[in-house]
Each structure stands twice: as structure tokens, then as C-alpha cells.
Write a protein that binds this DNA or RNA. Structure first.
Lengths: 329, 329
DNA sequence: GTGAAAGCGCTAACAT
DNA sequence: ATGTTAGCGCTTTCAC
């Protein structure tokens, strides 16, 4: 593997000049540039990023922290991040925490040890204390889940209102027994969506029934099934269910189906995220659309700005209630 | 940010000694080690991987090439890769090619420029010529899709046999009109699965009907729907459909449903991959289970061995036909 | 317009 | 057991 020295030698110039050509500086004469390019070609030279990165004291890597790669919600956001990253000459270090603090710490080390120039955290279970400390010395953005008043910039949606609108939709359809399948309320988004749920219930003069509130530890199909099983075993079954994730909703749908009940006739279901799957279920799923791709691009832009030392503002993106068969029939 | 010099100075030792402590060498006396650790603590020192990597001439990054991050098949494989990578102190550079040659080339540059120590390619659309050239100087493994006789080690399953078994299952159920929704046969796996399909048809004395063979450009829900629409518009509808991906199968299921037909009574459907969602459809999907996680761990182990300069053998993993409602009712 | 040289932070060979 | 030093491959300041 050739290095810059050998190129310089072959071209009969100094390494400085080779470097200038490499970096597209205009202070090199056309003749010299040509000689250098010839030498590069001949030696099949590729500049080593290891040397460049050390010299520039940067890695040009963006660390993305997600709880689980299997949730399509994150896949879409990542697509957005990737788009911006590529066009800004950054690369993505995708890190799945499985909500494990040890794993998380391994990944935090990547930025501590300069292997990553910044972090986009999408993990609701992230250790906010560590994150805050880290944010003092490193560029960090939170995406979707965030920490208010932490000084860490974030991009997200208005979870309370999104949840409110979904539940209101169910209520306006005539449902009086509306359940919610939420995730653990140690997460901010879960608390916000719960608030939206409660506000909708209250504002419409309905009764808040504690047995209609189910919490799950994770956002998966199985958790949705289990939660729905609980709800279906109730003496007074709900007639509608709002879940904070499409994955939960799809699991719930499945469980309702297995018990021989019909959606939406027996029970209406609404989810959250508008993942691709949500349009493939039978019936198709009413859900709150999050602008996932856009969220990704914005998070990436914010992070890159932050890495450059610029100030960045928090961003709240618009959501949209997408009404489909699982509530309308 | 402290560097190794400052630590050495504060501890009253040389940088070599600090380096030894950092790398856990036992040739350092307990007393000295303690002093160094104190200094590290005090300065909040974190060794820079930029320096270390340049010196060691490695990046400890593994580049993973996938066509689309949104296909859950890849997510599972990645989970496996990640598991091994972490425990071997490597990190993952996840790269989505979107089957675009330009993007692919950007990613190849990462290994050319030493930003990645090796590649696991899972992209069927990968440029095999470039890959072969690259493989001469770099560690490369192919996972799932591979290039026979290229000298590039791979881990995969027996696609022909898997496909054969799935189609045979349909035939043994009494179906005589069995269609296949395949992807473009420029991909090896597509050709292999087609061969399995044809062998099953032939061996059972059925007629090969060209109009029952549909090709799609991508593996997505929409492509499955479109393909199924074509099949349903046929004068002589097939009574069973085998698709080379669960995503296609789910799209097909959807289309059959929308046209008011029933699975499996009117048409039986079998997919491929056993992604999580395949158990959430209504009816649940008969599918060929690929050991995705294991495939990931093995690919990662092979790559790391290869990086170390060891020879590695190709691996063919077992698959399994999982029979569920979409064929059995 | 080009070159010489310093130095980014680390490891390892060699010396003691 | 510990220190000295060269050098990994690059960029950039400062001369000329």
C-alpha cells in the first residue's frame, strides 16, 4: 500500500504538494497537479484516513444510538440520517443498546476516545446523567425521545397532542371505553402520550378506567398481544384501543383476531408511527404518522452543525393522524 | 483533552509506561501502575483511538453492506454480527447501498482508505468484479448472497433445496397450479430458488406454466401486491403461490384479501425468511426459516478470522420449512 | 507555487 | 521494570 511519501517521490514533488492535490487546493499549478495525479494513478494510491483523521483530530463518524434495530421506526429515521451524513462526508456508526447500560457505555466510549465526532441518541432508556456530562465536551443531539432542560438539543414531535388526537378520534367514533397500551412511563414520550390520552378522556366527559391502562416493557408484537389479552379478559372489555407503537397495535390486532373478534366492529385499534407494516395488516391500521425520515435528516443536520461549533435550536415536527380500516371499518 | 504525554508527566513516568498500563501489560510494577492510574483518573484521560489506530494501522471497524435497512431479514443478521463484533472489540459501520453503484463505491472507499478493516457484503446487487479486486487486498466475506468460484468466502443456506421443499409442500397439499414470485434472476439466490421451484414442479409431474412465474425488481410489500395482482388477473389462477421473501408474501396476502379471496382456501401462500412479522399476519405465514442471527455471528467470526490473516471455509447453514396457516388453514 | 519540517497521539523495538 | 525514540500517514505553517 502506497503512502503519500511514495507518491511525492514518484511525482518528484514534496508531500505537501501531494496533500494539496489530494485536498483540491487551487494553489497547485496544473502541470504539477498532473504529475501528482499520474503518480497517484500509477501507484494505485489511496490516502489513509487514519493519518488524516489523527492529523485533523476527527473521525468523521456519527454515532447513532437506538434501542433495537428491528423496530422499523428507527430504520426509517436512520435512512434520513444516512442521507445527510453521506452528503456531508460523514459515516454512520449504528449502535444498538438493547437498552443495556453496559452496551451504552461501550458506545459512549467511542466518542470519548474520538472514534466518533458526535451522537444522535434515539434511545429512550439512555442514561441522561451520563449523556448530560458527555454533552459538555461532545456534540450530542436527541432524536424523538429527549431530556427537557438538559441543554441537549433535540428534534421530536408533540407527543401529547398526537396522542390526544388519536384518542379523540376514537371517542368521536362513539367509543366510550377506550384503553391505552403504553410503554413504561419512565420514558418521557410515554408520559406525554399518557397525558394526551387522559386529556382526551377528560375533555369528553368520559370516565378514566385504570384497568384500561396497560404498560409494556418493550415495543414488540408479543407485548402487544399480551397486553391485548389482558384487556380482553376484562369483565368490561374496552371497545377501542390506542397503542403507542404500531408494533404493539399489530400484536393487539393479532390477539383480537385469534379470539375470533373483529376489528373494528368489536374493537377499534389505533397505533403510532405509521411504519410500512401498518398498511399491510388486515384491516389496515389507523395510526399517527411521524415524519421519520425528516426527523433523521434534521437530527443529522443539527449534529453536524453542532460538531462545527454552531448553536442549534430544538425542532418540533408535525405529525398526522392517518385514519384507516382498523377504526373506520 | 489530556493526552498520553500529560498523563506520563503527571505520573512521573514515560509515555511508554502509560501505554503499557493502558494495554494491560504485566511488565509494570504495581506501584507504577497505581501512579499511572491515579494520573489517568485525575486528568480524566481517555486514550485517543485516532492515534492508536494510526499506529496499529487498523480501524477496528467492520463494514456491513446491505441493500435496504428496512428489510427485517437484514436487521436480524446485523444483530448477530453486532454480537460478535462487540465481544471482539470491533464496531459496525452499517452501509445501505440502495443497490446504487455510486453509494456502494463510497462505501468501498472506506476500506480502501483504511476506515474499515473488512467487509461483510449482504448486497445481492454488489458489483462482484469490484468486490473480487478488493478481496485481493482486503478481508471480505459474503453473507447470504455470494459469488461462486470468486475465492471470496461466504456463509449462506441451500437456496435451491429450501425453495424445492417449500414448493413441494404446496404440491403435496394437492396444488397443481403453483406460482412463484421471484426477484430478478440476475441474483444468484433468485436463480437458485427458481431451480428449486422448477425441480419440484418437474419431479411431481406438473406442467411448468410460464405465466405463473413473476419477477419483481425489489423485495417490498408493493412488489408483492403488484405481482399478485398479475397472477389474479390470469384466466387460470394459480391455487398456490411461493414467494422468495416474506415481504413479497405479505404484500401478496394483502392483495388476495383485498380482492375478497381467502388464504389458504382460495389461494395458499408461502414466503421466505421467517421475519417476525410473518407470524402476525392473518392468516399466519408459512415460510422458510433462515438462521439469520446465526448467519450474522458466523459471518462476523469469518471476517475477523480473515482480518487476522487466517484461512476461512465457506459455511452452508440449515434452513427449515415452517408450516403455518397460510398453507394449512 | 512549492518545499521543509513540525506534530497530531499512540505503540513497540531497543536500550538500560 | 522502565525510558528513549522512531515512526504510523497525514496536514499545515512558515519560508522561499
Amino acid at each position: 500500500m502506497a503512502n503519500i511519501q511514495q507518491v511525492a517521490k514518484l511525482a518528484g514533488v514534496s508531500v505537501a504538494t501531494v496533500s494539496r492535490v489530494l485536498n483540491g487546493q487551487r494553489t497547485v499549478s496544473a502541470k504539477t497537479r498532473f504529475k501528482v495525479e499520474q503518480a497517484i494513478e500509477k501507484l494505485n494510491y489511496e490516502p489513509s484516513m487514519l493519518g488524516r483523521n489523527l492529523r485533523n483530530s476527527e473521525s468523521r463518524m456519527l454515532l447513532i444510538l437506538i434501542p433495537a434495530i428491528t423496530n422499523p421506526f428507527y430504520s426509517e429515521v436512520i435512512k434520513g440520517i444516512e442521507h445527510i451524513a453521506i452528503s456531508s462526508n460523514y459515516n454512520i456508526l449504528l449502535c444498538e443498546t438493547d437498552s443495556s447500560p453496559e452496551r451504552e457505555n461501550i458506545y459512549f466510549d467511542l466518542v470519548r476516545t474520538k472514534m466518533a465526532d458526535g451522537i444522535i441518541s434515539m434511545d429512550p432508556a439512555v442514561n441522561t446523567e451520563t449523556l448530560k456530562v458527555l454533552a459538555k465536551k461532545h456534540a450530542i443531539i436527541q432524536c424523538s425521545e429527549y431530556t427537557p432542560d438538559s441543554g441537549i438539543p433535540y428534534v421530536t414531535i408533540d407527543n401529547e397532542r398526537a396522542s390526544y388526537q388519536a384518542v379523540k378520534h376514537l371517542i368521536q367514533l362513539g367509543h366510550k371505553e377506550v384503553a391505552i397500551i403504553n410503554s413504561d412511563e419512565k420514558y418521557l414520550y410515554a408520559r406525554q402520550r399518557m397525558m394526551g390520552y387522559k386529556r382526551a378522556i377528560m375533555e369528553h366527559g368520559l370516565e378514566l378506567n385504570e384497568s384500561y391502562i396497560i404498560h409494556t416493557q418493550q415495543l414488540g408484537f408479543e407485548q402487544g398481544q399480551q397486553a391485548m389479552r389482558k384487556l380482553l379478559s376484562l369483565k368490561e372489555r374496552p371497545t377501542a384501543v390506542f397503542t403507542v407503537s404500531d408494533l404493539l397495535a399489530i400484536g393487539a390486532l393479532k390477539e383480537i383476531n385469534s379470539q375470533g373478534l373483529l376489528v373494528p366492529n368489536d374493537i377499534a385499534v389505533a397505533g403510532f408511527d405509521k411504519i410500512d407494516f401498518s398498511n399491510m395488516t388486515n384491516p389496515t391500521l389507523t395510526t399517527v404518522a411521524q415524519p421519520m425520515y425528516k426527523m433523521g435528516t434534521i437530527a443529522a443536520e443539527m449534529l453536524i452543525a453542532k460538531i462545527k461549533g454552531q448553536e442549534v435550536e430544538n425542532v418540533i415536527l408535525d405529525h398526522e393522524l392517518v385514519i384507516r380500516q382498523s377504526t373506520l371499518g
